[in-house]
Structures are given as C-alpha cells and as structure tokens.
Design a protein around this nucleic acid. Structure first.
Lengths: 135, 135
DNA sequence: TTATTTTACTACCAAATTGGTAGGAATACA
DNA sequence: TGTATTCCTACCAATTTGGTAGTAAAATAA
C-alpha cells in the first residue's frame, strides 16, 4: 500500500509550485530539484505524467519553468497521485471491469470496494492549499 | 497503493475461516485452496505470516486444518493485511523514525501522516464479521 | 503399528515493477 | 546567437512480487 517515490515526489513538486503560485514568475525544475534534493532527470520524468493533466503553464528558455495554471485549492491530492501512480486502487477489480474471473461471486470484493471508496473520498477532499502554510 | 495478492488472499482465507467458525471442525488449507482457486503452496506461505499472530487453532493429520481462535468480529481487516503486507503505510516516514533525512522539515510529511491516520482508522474499524453474510 | 493426511519450514526462482540515468532535440528568451 | 530550459525516447539495475519445490514433523484413522 505504499505510495511510490514517484507519487511522493509528485506531491512535493506540486507543493513547491503551490508555494510559488502568488509570484509572477516561473519556477524551473532545476530549482525544484535543488530545493527538494530530487534529481532533475527524475523530476522531468514525473512532469511528463503530470503534464498530461491540465495543471501547468510552462515556458522554455531562460527564466522559464513551470507555474500552476489554477489556484492551489483547485488541485486535490488524489488527482495528483492518480496522475503518476498506476495502481491507486487497492485491487484491480474495483477499477477495471472483468479484471477478475470471480467477478460477482468474490467474497472479498466488498472489502476492496469499501476501502477504495473511503480512500478516494478522502484523497479527493484534500487539496494543495490544505498543506501550504501562509505566514 | 495496491494491496498485493498476498494481502488479498489473506483476507480471502480469513473470510473462509470466518464462515466456518460456527462449525465444530477444522478447515484444511486444501479445501480453502480449492474453494478460492489459490495454490496450496502459496496459501501455506501466507499462513506462515498469519500464524505469527494469535489467530488460529490448528491440527495436523487427517481431518485437521485451521480454525479461528476467536469470533470473526475480533479480527480487523487492518490487522490481517498488516500481518502479511510489509508496506501498509503510504510512506516509511510515518512509521519508522529517521527513515528520511528530511524529517521535521519535509513539507509533504503531513500529507502522508493524515492519509495513514485515515486509512488506519478505517481499516481497524472493519472486522471479518462486517463481510460475512448470515442467511 | 503403519499409512495417510495435513501442517510446518526452508530454499529457490522468474517476471514485473520501481527508481532511476543518459542523451539529445526543440524552443524561447536575454 | 548562445544559453537555459522544457520535452522526449531509450535504457538499465535493484527490488519486490508471486509464486514453486522439496521435505520434515505430527496427528489420526485403520
């Protein structure tokens, strides 16, 4: 049930961008890499996934980088983790139809369904703004 | 965040034993293996982990097998999964002290701490009896 | 007592996943 | 026009997952 480093780093990167949201400048991956101690190359790869969502405004070249497109309260922790993490659901059966030949008769299905519902509800209720403190 | 097959099978096995609880007989791993379509050898391995807890009464030889020591409402889904799953927490930092050199300054820590608390609370509130239907 | 059934235990292994790195192309700005 | 930065595709080693194999030990039925 661990969140992979990819998911954890994704949240870290999004928090950095959330901190930077009020400012009128881009934040480069190089800066984030140095602040968070994550290799630039790895962050780039994580951004590939995050960019598939409508999350950022970007700019290349000097003084370029990333900026959140919307305010931090518009990004839920759930959707961030979901963007990079393949298996967020506790079991395939609660997400993918016919992923299990015992569909309909499996006695453990309700266990995973309930757990998934609970986690989804929780993760979608928390946003970046819940985790940035303003001075 | 997926629960591994080991964790899922563990819950399946425990549910089978819960169904059998009222009866005054042992349930063999062979029977469970056939009912659930899980290889006997793999179930044996899962039982090695579960047996470290105070879960069962066992008997070897003919008509032997496993029996729950306590009534199904005494077993939480959380402790069952915890027994076989190494990484139930979303991140090491919420379980193991000094597992991360950024302890105390990491901005994402509260995210994993909250999530872990929420999941733990939920998983420990559900027991086997919540998932066995009585006719 | 003996054969059989069942748990108990240790060792091994292939496939998938994780957690990265490397190298370069494209682009925008100073 | 040069440099900083994003963008993109491959590749790879270590770890974890999801098992299997073989055997010993014990309890019971016959």
């Amino acid at each position: 049930m661990k969140i992979t480093t990819k998911g954890r780093y994704a949240v870290a990167v999004m928090l950095e961008l959330a901190y930077n949201y009020e400012k009128d400048e881009f934040l480069s991956l190089k800066d984030i890499s140095e602040k968070e101690g994550i290799s630039l190359k790895y962050i780039e790869k994580i951004m590939l996934d995050l960019k598939k969502q409508d999350f950022f405004i970007t700019s290349r070249g000097q003084d370029g980088g990333y900026k959140l497109k919307y305010s931090p309260d518009k990004y839920t922790i759930g959707e961030i983790i979901n963007s990079v993490e393949k298996d967020l659901a506790p079991a395939d059966c609660v997400k993918i139809d016919n992923s299990c030949e015992k569909q309909g008769i499996c006695k453990t299905y309700p266990v995973w369904k309930d757990l998934n519902d609970e986690m989804t509800k929780y993760l979608n209720s928390k946003t970046l703004s819940d985790y940035i403190e303003r001075k």
